[in-house]
Design a protein around this nucleic acid. Sequence first.
RNA 1: CGGGGUGUGGUGUAACGGUAGCACGCAUGCUUUGGGUGCAUGUAGUCCGAGUUCGAAUCUCGGCACCCCGACCA
Length: 419
Amino acid sequence: MRQSSLFSTTRREAPRDETSRNAQLLIRAGFVHKELAGVYSFLPLGWRVLRNIMQIIREEMDAIGGQEVHLSALQSRSLWEQTDRWSDEEVDIWFKTSLNAGGEAGLAPTHEEPITAIMREHISSYRDLPQLPYQIQLKFRNELRARSGLMRGREFYMKDMYTFARTQQEHEELYERVKRAYFTIFQRIGIGDRTYLTFASGGIFSQYSHEFQTVAEVGEDTIYLDREKGIAVNKEVFTDAVLADLGLERERLEEVRAVEVGNIFSLGTRFSEALQCTFRDQDGTLKYPVMGCYGIGPNRLMGLVAELFSDDRGLVWPSSIAPFAVHLISLSTEASVQETAATIYRDLQSHGIEVLWDDRTEASVGEKLADADLIGIPVQIRVGPKSLAERRAEIVQRKGGTPQYVPIGELIPAVEALV
RNA sequence: CGGGGUGUGGUGUAACGGUAGCACGCAUGCUUUGGGUGCAUGUAGUCCGAGUUCGAAUCUCGGCACCCCGACCA
């Protein structure tokens, strides 16, 4: 894409009402727009990042047998009353509204009810199980207080998978399968080395749920981490009994702040029973599927990555989710420079390398370089009169390191080695 | 929801109760071309509503919005 046609702009200063680093950087770089407290719109660059995150999640969910669906955000009152989760006493973060035709509807804060109601219509035999439907969909939660920029919003995407198993044992196998896929996802996004499986409160159907907590100062959660074993305990269940149960020693634990990037739960048959989702087993008896649910928040991941991978000049995206693989920058309006850059631009595109070309003629060199650093695309190719005189261009990695002066004809393999 | 704070052009900021000013941006022209170039001209503002006052950005009350701490976060 040519930057001269990109409508979003960068700015020197962040709005005063944003204090979280992730939102400040993302707004300054033109990735997002704040609509309301805790509600952000995504502009071209930001949407590309979010889509990349979603795509990684999608690939890993598909790889373990997930089937992508898309459930409605608008939900009927009657369905949720069947599980006693419509009343504000039970679930206090509903966005509800009345229908002109009469009755009430709500914006889904989660989707256990609708997915179970749907599966009820499509599952009837043990032969139909197990199933792993999932979606990447907007969730709405009327939080009393939004904060931490993109990391705790009132409207946000969630990847939510639900598993339907024939037996508890089968459920546990699926649960482990999803757990492994989650680690792969966090690894691919670039936060794997600081993300830990964390034991948290599990609700009624299992002693624990599992959270995936990424160690970060900005985190809202406090966890107790055993780095050697690679597991942690959330402060909310941090008791001697729990430590004993998990075989952890208090002295070996480190108290750290962390961001919950994923959470997986065993649901038992709570929803399948309440909504009468059944299947006929091999022996002829009617049974309820054992369910699990598994969430990841793409918006929160984007905010977290922005927060973790940035410096005093701006964002530093991991290549797996960067809005573009390469930022091509013309450092002069001279015809020879622009023509060479145009050739490189087409060359990169024809090799399937996503490139943002700063072809602007009105911006100064300093402005272009400052913008490129703020936007944070991992690889910059700078084309200017000096290096062009030797038929070279400069490859600079945003995260730092020595610039390479590469002959124009050898740029493609040099870039491919980096992305 | 409890506590605290803040609302001034698009953005960041100044102004004792007395002419709303500065910087960035944007527009026009010139200038400059390897780290936000310089100059000139122009553009645009006191969150909303009451009240006090000769006079309100400034004081009072109400509303709305935003931020922070806490609580909450299947």
